[in-house]
Amino acid sequence: MTRSTPTMRAMVVALGALLSSVSAAAGTDALWSHKQPTAADLLPPAQAFALVAAEQHQDYIDVSWSIAPGYYLYRKRLAFAAEPAGSAALGTAQLPVGAKLQDEQGDNEVYRDLLTARLPLHGGRAPTRLRVRFQGCADIGVCYPPQTQVIDVVASTP
């Protein structure tokens, strides 16, 4: 077997150092991703508050979110409308009891992890799409602008 030259050894050392630095940065970030987000790795709103589905049942629609760890949605900032406007009559959203949160905006109810809002359907007509508005924050003290998203209403799977 040929002995390694100083140049080869230097290349191996340089390569090892490079891989170590990259893996340290990436690995540490992966570890941190299970903890609180920092300002540097804030998720885009669509990932922090992922609007998962709007499922139509016989006389209601369930709208659900998957909320990333370390983020929350305000109950008072949820709004729903048929799209196009007036294409169906929606009742008042039925929402679960949220966690209490007191902040500069007073006493609030907020939702974490998973949220399903139930929208009663009046008149037997369901919209094909919903316009959904929501707003939330990250626990590190950063808030996102209100988001408006239009989502297709799909038939529920039995």
Binding site: V13, G16, A17, L18, S20, S21, A24, A25, T28, A40
Partner: peptide, 27 residues
């Protein structure tokens, strides 16, 4: 000695890479 040197450089580079990454990610 070469192995020890290699390990030392890896540790220093890992630390440097980590701090540089965090610093520039925030900046």
């Amino acid at each position: 000695r070469t192995i020890l040197l290699f390990l030392f450089i890896c540790i220093v580079a890992a630390g440097g890479g980590f701090f540089a990454y965090r610093h520039f990610a925030h900046a």
